[in-house]
Design a protein around this nucleic acid. Structure first.
Lengths: 147, 147
DNA sequence: TATTGTTATACTCTATAACTATA
DNA sequence: TATAGTTATAGAGTATAACAATA
């Protein structure tokens, strides 16, 4: 009894799960990057803003750990956001090795606008499938990725 | 009436669709790369082998187009596979600008072994979800990516 | 002139190593 | 000694530009 499609019943490389996952991610990221362009940030910046907007001010390292990126990568990312007036960095009085990173007023406004644009881009990407399928997709991916 | 989870109801970056898709792709690729290591190829090589195994011998450019990679990237990929005795290249008698790329006997055996290992890796990755959810995932991703 | 394969080069992304300052 | 941030550097991956051979 066949209970599911065999993993590789076809030679079409576009039907391989790895290809589908990768290109779904690429297409969604491209849509989000385009949607965020008016706010002068990209999807990686948005990830950092999202963490900062939903947290008490924390150190660069904490944000980097949450995002799963290296602390040296975090430095470059924040350099750009600071230059744009979206975040500020100042030494933590309690431990002056740490930088406390905070959104500026402009940064928080940027985040709110970006959050809305991000949601619209996601909805656009998901437009071809039903709300039920969207929920199912999220549940399945969460199970597979298992953070 | 709520018909689906709001796109950004949570601040957890691990719950964002883009993150889930990207990391599902990364985790699956890592599993596949590990599974293919005994055959001295990786997931990108496997993609090329898969195309070559299911086609009349074609030019490098055709394979590159199918895989969605640049022809200069194809050159480097085939250089390695040729050095390993997996593929051969020879000028097309009908159009000597083209290289006809073919799997060697060893290459075809490698592909068959790799195909099996690839299938096992995919099954391992999908082990936590039901066969029905797997089919649903494939259908949803195909719709979203729409090759 | 256009196309295929090749080579050299450059660019993006990200991590490792080493340094500074603080603890 | 260990940690946070920084800087310099290197590596992987991939694309662009220029060139040779061929059409």
């Amino acid at each position: 009894m066949i209970v599911s499609t065999p993993p590789s019943a076809t030679a079409d490389p576009h039907d391989v799960l790895g290809y589908l996952l990768k290109h779904a991610a690429l297409q969604l990221t491209a849509l989000i990057d385009a949607a965020l362009e008016p706010f002068d940030i990209d999807s990686k910046d948005f990830g950092a803003l999202r963490v900062l907007a939903h947290r008490e001010p924390t150190s660069q390292l904490e944000v980097a750990k949450t995002l799963g990126i290296d602390r040296t990568t975090m430095v470059a990312l924040l350099d750009v956001l600071e230059r744009k007036g979206i975040v500020t960095r100042r030494p933590d009085p309690a431990d002056r090795r740490r930088n406390v990173v905070e959104l500026t007023a402009h940064g928080f406004k940027t985040y709110e606008d970006a959050e809305a644009a991000h949601g619209r881009a996601e909805s656009e990407f998901l437009g071809a499938i039903s709300p039920g399928a969207v929920d199912q997709l999220r549940r399945t991916l969460r199970t597979l990725v298992e953070h």
